[in-house]
Amino acid sequence: MTIPTAEITENERVGREIKAWLARHSLKQTDLADVIGVAQKNVSRRLRGEIPFRIDELLAITQALDITLGQLLGNDLVNEKNPHLVSGEGSRGQTSGHFVAGDGFEPSTSGL
Rank of each mutant, 00 (worst) to 15 (best):
S91G: 07
N42H: 14
G97F: 14
G97P: 01
L72P: 00
G74W: 14
L72E: 04
M1F: 11
R54T: 10
T62H: 02
I3H: 03
T9S: 15
L47W: 00
E50A: 07
V35E: 03
L112P: 04
P52R: 02
D56K: 12
Q71S: 13
D34G: 13
K19G: 00
G49M: 07
L22K: 05
T109Q: 12
V14R: 04
K81P: 01
V14L: 05
A20V: 05
T2S: 13
G70T: 12
K19E: 10
G15C: 08
T109P: 01
I8P: 08
G111E: 05
E10T: 11
E57I: 06
I36Y: 00
E80I: 09
T9Y: 08
G93W: 01
L73C: 08
E80A: 15
N11K: 09
L77T: 03
S44L: 00
G88I: 00
Q29F: 05
V35I: 15
S110P: 00
S91D: 13
H98E: 10
H98I: 14
E50N: 10
A60R: 05
H98W: 14
F99R: 12
A20P: 01
Q29C: 01
N79A: 12
S87P: 00
A20F: 09
I18Y: 01
T2F: 11
G70I: 02
N82D: 14
F53N: 02
T109E: 12
E7Y: 07
L32R: 04
R48D: 13
T62G: 15
L47F: 03
T68C: 09
K81L: 14
G97Y: 15
E89C: 07
G15I: 00
L22V: 11
I67H: 03
L59F: 12
Q40M: 06
N11Y: 05
V38F: 01
E57N: 09
N82L: 09
G111K: 06
S108L: 06
S96M: 11
D66Y: 13
S44W: 01
R13Y: 06
R13V: 04
G111L: 05
E80D: 15
L47R: 00
F99Q: 10
E57L: 04
V14T: 04
S91L: 08
G49S: 13
A39P: 00
A60N: 08
G88H: 08
T68G: 12
E57F: 09
E89N: 06
G104E: 04
T62W: 01
L77A: 06
D31M: 03
I8W: 10
T30R: 11
A39G: 04
V100N: 13
F105C: 01
E89P: 03
G102P: 02
L73R: 00
L73H: 05
L58G: 04
R92V: 04
I36P: 00
S110V: 13
R13F: 06
R48K: 10
T68F: 09
Q63A: 15
G49A: 11
E106P: 00
M1R: 12
S44H: 04
K81M: 13
T62C: 15
G104S: 09
E57R: 06
L47N: 01
I61A: 02
R54W: 04
A39E: 06
